[in-house]
Design a protein around this nucleic acid. Structure first.
Lengths: 327, 327
DNA sequence: CTACTCCAAGACAACGTTGTCTCTCGATGT
DNA sequence: ACATCGAGAGACAACGTTGTCTTGGAGTAG
């Protein structure tokens, strides 16, 4: 800035004024300064600027997701980015991969960088460490936190799951199996709750803690070999649904066993049969989370809110297979 | 820091020493300081620290992608994040949506934030504005820049496309259609070049500037209605492939018209028939781009490099449909 | 017992900005 | 012609930290 001032033949402060667009500079001086800035490729030192201004805002938020490479996280991320863009805010991201330690490390690191706020899809089962993060607003998305209260945006897991199972019941099914993710995940528990709710006291076979496509395929095959094999499947998560589809295709039952999956996935409509799902709306969730966060950043100070984003049942074929008349 | 010093009964500088882990502090003093830091929730002001240290490193890089919500960008992003994590560097991301203006704006904004480097999947057709970005290393990924030279990581588009088309030829096809993305995109041009290369002087019907699934479906239907309808399709991009699959299924030709798509996509193996593709390797590309960037950040100063990541032909079924004996 | 060495801890300045105060100079009104 | 006013421009200090130099006191050798 000194160099610019010297080149333009003005004082340091005048350069500062021009750079910050303050009005009280005569046009020709301003032009000279701008030319000098240009020719010297001067760029202000943000650190110094923030220091002097005592500006606590970095106009940057941190977002902790399960894995930026998976479609659900990607959609969340994109929606958050769009909301941030509207406010001239940039986004730092990190993938947690279900790793509790990484969640804590990244949260700390982002806070250290003075991000104005944090949006977290928690990986760990305990977020109480966040209670020391005073002054940094936090919003949770996709999964509720535990041990710490803050705004939370989640799908209507119970209602969505119950709706899916009722849909199967409406098509004549009585033995409806549940295949779910790790029970330590709150979403898995909620979806199971919805399943139970819809079936009352007569649930079908249940498999918990299924993790990943391959495990899901195996679990599905095992289920269908049982004497009391179900006539319909309700799968509690993306990859489980896909694993189930693979299993059904493999043993040629894809046209006779009904299937509804929780969470939509690309090309579900191109499979044979097209897969009926309870779609979540990650874009809406991301937008809602970002809106809530920015409200907090702007000083809103109420008690923690829970924002539920409704799911949508999308009938595509696999969920409308009626129970086989005889068996 | 002053408060901490007072609380611990030491001088400012000693606190600084403890915070920065300098060895020359007696253990009990250090303990007192740490306790004070804890109780006051003191966190150093990064801006001030950078200012004094004259540290130009923010340990932050910027990544400009087409759209963080699409799987290809997501995989790139993830690989870059992992490479960055190994070095304790964080990642700022932005989605460009093919918008030239946004590319320039975000590049400038990230540079303004003093990111240590930039990885760009260019949206615009001219990157010459970057030549003014002295001091900020830049690496391009997925698409080569124009008007500006820097390290670039791209797929072997020509060879990959040629291989795909030769694969179809090997299965007896002679009238092989090409459906490609906007020609202004370098990748589209290269893939077309590969197609021509494989077919010599007898190319089949060609449709350029197909954008998106719906347009691709329409274009495919139109192609197949022609008198000289092709017996095989080569599609130059993800969404075009999917559109083509839809079209083929719709008119019931999915078992008789061969198809090879450029770029893999999730569930391609679950479709009917499973779709043969030329897979790109976004994870490798992201890793290579990040490695190149960090080399530059660490001072490497050679001429711009072009890093080509080989594609892989994955035969799954749709590309192995032989030409119908009579027609 | 003195003189020297060494090391922990403190004092001070400086990093690049900007808020605030002050100064200068030209314009205006009487 | 003189007093008053206002606006544009500069001088100066301060933001929170750390590099460098200085100080003080304990330890050690002669």
């Amino acid at each position: 800035m000194n160099d610019v001032a010297r080149t333009a033949g003005v004082s340091l402060k005048t350069v500062s004024r021009v750079v910050n667009g303050e009005p009280s500079v005569t046009p020709d001086l301003a032009a000279r300064v701008r030319a000098a800035v240009e020719s010297l490729d001067y760029r202000p030192h943000l650190g110094a600027s923030m220091l002097r201004r005592n500006d606590r805002r970095t106009r940057m938020i941190g977002v902790l997701l399960e894995d930026v490479a998976n479609p659900f996280s990607g959609a969340l991320h994109r929606a958050i980015e769009d909301a941030a863009r509207d406010r001239g805010v940039h986004v730092l991201t990190g993938s947690l991969d279900e790793d509790e330690q990484r969640e804590r490390d990244l949260a700390r690191a982002f806070r250290q960088r003075q991000t104005d706020g944090l949006i977290v899809a928690p990986a760990g089962s305990d977020q109480s460490y966040l209670s020391r993060f005073t002054g940094t607003p936090i919003v949770f998305v996709d999964r509720p936190p535990s041990g710490f209260g803050a705004d939370t945006v989640v799908s209507t897991n119970v209602a969505g799951a119950a709706g899916a199972v009722r849909h199967l019941v409406a098509h004549g099914h009585r033995r409806i199996a549940f295949l779910g993710d790790y029970q330590r995940r709150a979403t898995a528990r909620e979806r199971f709750r919805g399943y139970l709710q819809a079936l009352g006291h007569r649930p079908g076979p249940v498999v918990h803690d299924v993790r990943g496509e391959v495990a899901a395929e195996r679990a599905t095959l095992a289920l269908l070999r049982r004497a009391d094999a179900p006539t319909a499947l309700f799968t509690g998560q993306n990859l489980i649904t896909i694993g189930a589809v693979r299993a059904l295709q493999r043993i040629g039952l894809h046209q006779s066993i009904a299937l509804v999956g929780f969470d939509d996935f690309p090309l579900a409509d191109l499979l044979d049969p097209p897969v009926t799902v309870v779609a979540q709306h990650p874009a809406r969730m991301g937008r809602a989370a970002a809106d809530a966060l920015f409200e907090r950043i702007d000083g809103h100070n109420g008690p923690p809110r829970e924002i539920r984003v409704a799911t949508t049942l999308i009938p595509r074929g696999s969920g409308e297979i009626r129970i086989a008349p005889a068996r």
